[in-house]
Amino acid sequence: MARNARPALRRQLYSAAVRLLVWLSASVCCCLLAVLIGYICWRGLPGLSWELLTSEESLLQGTAGLLPSLLNTLCVVAVSLAAALPLGVGAAIYLTEYARSRRLTAAVEFASEVLSGIPSILYALVGVIVFCSALGLQKTLLAGSLTLAIMTLPTILRTTQESLRTVPRSYREGALSLGSGRWRMIATVVLPSCVDGIVTGCILAAGRVVGESAVLMYTAGLSTAMQDFSTIQGIMRASGSTLAVALYVYAKERADFAAAFAAATVLLALSALINLAARLAGRRLGRRQRRKKHPAALTRRQGGPHG
């Protein structure tokens, strides 16, 4: 009897092999990340200095400078978020608070799924046709930002929608029963309690924009010179490379690997920071989602001695 309680040797071997594969795969993933980060820091950190981050590239002195690329990145993130945020949040509000037709909701959700599946090189083509030529924006940061706004719309829509769903029904009913109109109810009760979801969406969208290169290469230009951000017209006409595009230009077109790895280090630090921020903002959202899923547990806990 006791002998039969243990699985046969072959099954034990099988189990051990599966276990080994599982642990091996997980360690491969961790090693990959460690090697990537380690290698980039090893090659990039020596070239990184305060001067590099705060100066312009100078051909005369032969020094690199990432300040223009950093400013361009900032500008693209700001403009594309400014365009995508109202659209995405508005769409999410309509879908969760107003829409009665399930078919419309399904259609919008499918469209947003399609948008998030389209590769960036196709966004680049569309940006080139629509914003650069048809709307006459030329190759400018503005054209690139607007193209990216379409690309990031699904991210913002989805996270806002998820967060709107966690707002308790009783909040809405309370506001409506006090005689508030639907929009007033949304603006004063629903939106303030789902700010964290909107913020998460923005952070995720910013992450995509910071890392994006294909779209901007063809719609926003490749220049690494300083742009004029002091006037509205200057911003409208500014054309240049963001950090990710500058990295490509340094590595592939100029074979200036010191600058490329310095840019990669900055880019890596930025994306890690954005990742961390999204995690922190998302944690609050996740806590509320869990509460929404198990309301019974919460009321029991709050019920005190009477519950």
Binding site: C29, L247, K252, N275
Partner: peptide, 24 residues
């Protein structure tokens, strides 16, 4: 502890992957 690793891998921009691929 390992879940964030996946998030970080997802967050690395594709040009950075390209750069490391090109140099390593």
């Amino acid at each position: 502890a390992i879940r964030p690793v996946v998030g970080l891998l997802a967050g690395i921009p594709s040009v950075v992957y390209g750069l490391v691929g090109m140099c390593v």
